[in-house]
Design a protein around this nucleic acid. Structure first.
Lengths: 179, 179, 179, 179
DNA sequence: CATGAATGAGTGTTCATTCAT
DNA sequence: AATGAATGAACACTCATTCAT
């Protein structure tokens, strides 16, 4: 299963989505097509699983940061969050850009990372905000968007660290006005 | 050409990406397949054109807001920007979610809206910021992400207006710390 | 009409039969598709006309040789015939090989050159042969096959002149046994 | 594979080249289109294989005649050659005419029969000729052309046997002058 | 469980042909 | 007569999926 998803990733990076056929997946994974269908009902499920796997990896990072900064000020936790997410995406920007742009998302089932962030932050932000609802709407969007941008779309002249720092400033600025 | 893109949109909304075949496009557009190929070299080009058209429409909105608030404070201009973009996307959220999730983007050629915003804001923000580079990195990301979120992914209990307002607050907060 | 056939020849040589489309013919000939259809009922007719034109050109060569050697011994006439045909084909071997191999012949309507040769030789050979029928069967076949072979398929080490001479010897040898 | 080529032959004879579509081939061969593509990379390859198969069949006949008349005079061997080739083509003249006229040859890769003949005859003719090169150029051309003509294009009034005999005479006459 | 040959519905695309101008 | 945009039937080919071994 992991092997299959890894095969998809390899094909995706080497030749693009259009080269991702079930037969090629099997070949690259070193199994037979039949075996691919033992684990996934159809091709769509493979893409879903790929997105899910990524979401879970990011989710684990989020949980870890939340747990590790349970007592600390929200700003610190968020800085850690941004840090972890940016690093994770920066490890293979090409892949994550591809995942976003080319691999179909089946609209609606998504926003997994934002949702996860929202849930994870609910507790951490509860005491801070007069209107939790609105804060929990904005912060995950900022974290997700800025982390992606920092890792994948920052200007050529800006370092990863500088981008992280600026992302942190933006989120902190918002949190401050949400007293 | 417009008719063809409109046909794609219609099929997309009614039956999803997989139903978008060149023959069906022709049928829905009321022309022959051959004519579709008179205007587009292949199916991929149709999707590209669809994304481009959307980007241009948003670009025009951006330009309009920038021009109309040329003398006004940046905050106001940005509020107008968010307003216009949110309204534009809110007019047909389903479509824009689809466009984002299912219609392949050909990774890399993208971020059109952010880029346009960046260029449009360069002048408006020039006097404000000590480090224009970083501001021009963050603001377009915030505008784009919050506008999309407000229009397409806001919590069920939050009104469009409330989402816009909150988006505005977040961006304003960042601009304030970027003296 | 000539222009159209010339266009076909040009495309044929530059890009092969598969590139010969009616639209491309029109383009290369410098007219519109509609005009092509003014002169030819359909695409097949163009190929037929091409073969016919070639057959007529060869036919004229045959007639000329026959007329010019009307009084001379048959051997001489045949030598002239082979000479003329070989030269004609050797002028553009590539084209004639293409014409033979790739341009569909519509089986059965063919053997135009052999038939023409047969008719042209009927008189010249009449006095020589006890069985004209058989001679008129063999000689055109020899002339056609050897002329083509000499012009288009002779071994790399053999000169055109040598090939012609050898072709002549073969035909003469046959004529001699056909007293 | 044999089944596929046989299907092509069947369609060719019944409905002509234009009816030879990959789907129809599959249908007539009793397999699926997919299976056709398991054995042949594309449609062109099928035609090539068809020509190749024919060339091999003829080649086997040539080899057999050469072997069986290894010690005998060259005249006899050639008579046997002509005999075998004429009979082979006469068994289904229509098909071989079609193969020649309508099935594209991909110019240049061809003359397979002549080449085979040339190689087969090299040994047999070696002692006879002062100039082997020229003899090996002419004889295969004569054998091929006369065998085809006898089988496929002889005058209506001439029997197969008579045509064979006359072909033999022509070749023998040439061999005699090539002492 | 694994295999991978076989399947065939379905797709993108081409191109001969037409006909209103 | 000439044009060339429009047509759409038809085709080569792919690839997700199955199932007998």
């Amino acid at each position: 299963m992991e092997a299959i998803l890894d095969a998809v990733v390899r094909i995706l990076k080497r030749q693009g989505v259009d080269a991702v056929t079930t037969n090629r997946i099997a070949e690259v994974a070193g199994v037979s097509v039949g075996s691919v269908y033992q684990y996934f009902p159809d091709k769509g499920a493979i893409f879903v699983a790929l997105h899910d796997r990524h979401a879970e990896q990011m989710g684990r990072l989020v949980d870890k940061a939340v747990v590790e900064h349970a007592g600390a000020p929200a700003e610190e936790m968020i800085a850690a969050l941004v840090d972890a997410l940016v690093d994770a995406h920066a490890r293979d920007p090409e892949l994550f850009a591809l995942l976003d742009a080319e691999v179909p998302h089946r609209a609606g089932g998504e926003r997994a990372l934002e949702t996860h962030l929202r849930n994870a932050l609910r507790l951490a932000l509860a005491p801070r905000s007069r209107d939790l609802e609105r804060t929990l709407f904005v912060v995950p969007v900022l974290v997700d968007a800025l982390a992606h941008a920092a890792a994948l779309h920052r200007p050529a002249r800006m370092s990863l660290e500088a981008a992280k720092r600026e992302a942190g400033r933006a989120i902190r600025a918002y949190l401050r006005v949400t007293s």
